[in-house]
């Protein structure tokens, strides 16, 4: 049966703002298909983003959607998830959004292992603001603020999030939507903080400055640099240059999820209150009858 996109989209919000050929649409498509495959009810989903081209995604899909401030999506998502732990909270953000201005929140969300899925659309540039370099722009690439070539070294976002404590980390790219869907579905089903980094094309801002102005050519180029994880370790350091491993890079089940830890602590605190109340009641019942009951408030 053909996938029913109409139920997942807000057709009245079309046309979208993205450039023709932009990879963000492929990521969003993979995301809603994965949500559907997980059997998620749209009303249980809180879909949160920051600011950027990528972060415009929530406006176009029919669920509870939250377009926040630049870099802060994970903080809003954390509050939302804590307020409603039974909900399915998903965040989508660009590389600048999640790793530059939002870098601090990124590592702390990983550390807490809160049950949120983060999808990073890594187009290696600030798309929305006109092609300034981001923390993932390759050294030597040109950007609106790197006319002589970028001197900044970049982050490997998967290594970063694994080190910070995320319990599911995967990487895919927009050249293979079916594979991407599988990675995202795994992330959505994972209990704990999950990250899917999606290598994507911004031909408009990155490509034009770096000899890849055509979207399909740039997608093909991005896809050609992907190496299956099983093959990755067979490569020499020189062979790894400019390439990246794809697949589920990290998945562990041995760390407690944050909302569950909180819930256990809260149960414990409530039990202590009940125990204390019982002890007071017992002490009261031991008192001689002549004394007035319940004198533990301060009287004036």
């Amino acid at each position: 049966m053909a996938f029913d996109y109409a139920t997942w989209l807000r057709p009245e919000m079309m046309p979208h703002i993205w450039c023709p050929g932009c990879g963000i649409g492929i990521v969003l498509k993979s995301l809603v298909r994965s949500m559907d495959a997980c059997g998620w009810d749209q009303d249980t989903i809180g879909f949160v983003s920051g600011i950027g081209c990528t972060s415009r995604a929530p406006g176009y899909v029919d669920m509870n959607t939250l377009h926040t401030t630049h870099g802060r999506a994970l903080t809003f998502a954390t509050g939302l998830k804590m307020a409603k732990p039974s909900s399915n909270v998903v965040v989508m953000a660009g590389d600048g959004d999640s790793a530059a201005i939002g870098g601090n929140h990124l590592i702390h969300a990983c550390r807490r292992n809160i049950d949120i899925t983060l999808i990073i659309v890594n187009n290696e540039i600030y798309g929305m603001t006109g092609g300034q370099f981001s923390p993932t722009t390759p050294t030597g690439s040109r950007a609106a603020t790197a006319p002589y070539g970028n001197i900044d070294p970049g982050f490997d976002l998967c290594n970063l999030t694994i080190a910070a404590g995320a319990t599911y980390v995967a990487r895919g790219h927009v050249g293979n939507g079916v594979f991407l869907e599988r990675l995202i579905k795994g992330a959505l089903q994972h209990k704990g903080f999950s990250v899917v980094e999606v290598m994507s094309n911004c031909h408009t801002q990155f490509g034009r400055r770096n000899k890849h102005p055509d979207p399909s050519e740039l997608v093909t180029f991005i896809a050609s640099n992907a190496v299956a994880l099983s093959q990755w370790n067979k490569l020499t350091d020189e062979e790894k240059e400019g390439k990246y491993p794809i697949g589920v890079l990290h998945k562990v089940a041995n760390r407690p999820e944050y909302c569950e830890s909180y819930h256990r602590m809260s149960e414990h605190a409530q039990q202590r209150v009940r125990d204390a109340a019982r002890k007071i009641a017992e002490a009261e019942s031991m008192k001689p009858k002549t004394e007035p009951a319940g004198g533990h408030q301060i009287e004036d």
């Binding site: 954390t78 509050g79 307020a83 909900s87 929140h105 909180y262 809260s266 409530q270």
Partner: peptide, 29 residues
């Protein structure tokens, strides 16, 4: 808050704290 079934979280900075407050409020808190 844990005693009354509410949620308390110490965030990584005040920007995050304010974001979490808004997110929680939108979740009904």
């Amino acid at each position: 808050l844990p005693q009354v079934g509410g949620a308390f979280i110490q965030m990584e900075d005040e920007i995050a704290a304010m974001g979490a407050v808004i997110g929680a409020a939108l979740g009904g808190a």
